[in-house]
Amino acid sequence: MHLSADHLSIDFPLSSMEHGQAFKPTPGAPPLGGKIHTQRGRSYVRAIDDVSFSLGRGDRLALVGHNGSGKSTLLRVLAGIYHPTSGSVSSSGNVSGIFNMSLGFRQEASGYRNLVLKGLMAGRTRAQIEAALPEIAEFTGLGPYLDMPLQSYSQGMAMRLAFAATTAFSNDILVMDEWIGAGDAGFQEKIIERMTDFLHASTIIVLASHSTTLLRRIANKAIWLEQGRVRQAGGIDVIDEYEASIMPQGPSAAIRKQVREGRGLWWLPARDGSISIGHLLWNFADAPTDLQLFVFGPDGRRQVVRNTVEQSGAWLASDWVRPGMAFEIGSQRSDEALGRCVIP
């Protein structure tokens, strides 16, 4: 099984360029959108510019980049919706896609009817679809709503339906655009579970999202797109580099990596010019989920700063934080702290 792109480029024709010339980019701002170029008197946006990669069985590729960097366009080219201007995409099977929620569903029809249509679209027979329906219905957790028209669904409910239908009827390769964030926490866990479980472990998934936490949990490869070009490609280190670039005041990629791979609570002083004095960083991946962040006041009493914190995370120090203060992270059920750190 494979999915690969070979020197892929795609141009979108611009019907009009009213301003005659491209705007000068704001200094220091990240470049947005594709490059605009003119060819034989017509203007084009180069949405994807010379992108190549190759994925094999079980690969999960994360796409990161600013708005308009070409993530969605690349996904659509992979799914066969846009035809490449030059270069090519080759895959061993059908590529299924989940994009914007309003796409590929009929608002007036019931949830069940939409599932049937999705199945037909994926080339399944009526009998195959009927056989798969109970399991899909169970997975969506939508119950009686499946008999109601889609327009009565909330965004998150529609997303549940879309995800269940697409994964149930997708054959082997799945591309997904930024939308996972629409579901509630419970369903997000279900999604991640389904994408990483045994049955689906042999598939190829390409995923674009701004939620780097989510991408880290699913992906094993990453591509950072900028103006349609590959700025960096590799393992999930690329996600760290990207995060560091969008938050220049935050920790660098190297420190993020160190935190992710270590265990403990650290103090990271801010660089010059920052509004804050620094960050607290921690990683207790094996700890219980009911973690709290505490501070010891000048009187030596332990007080709660954050009622619930992630097992791995960062806290931007508030302006009351002074050198000499001690912080602790611990479980709500035990007085013993997992980690302790004193502000130097």
Binding site: G80, I81, G97, F99, N100, S102, L103, G104, M121
Partner: peptide, 9 residues
């Protein structure tokens, strides 16, 4: 349109 932009049918 929704199908054309959402699937490769």
């Amino acid at each position: 349109r929704p199908w054309i932009l959402g699937t490769s049918t």
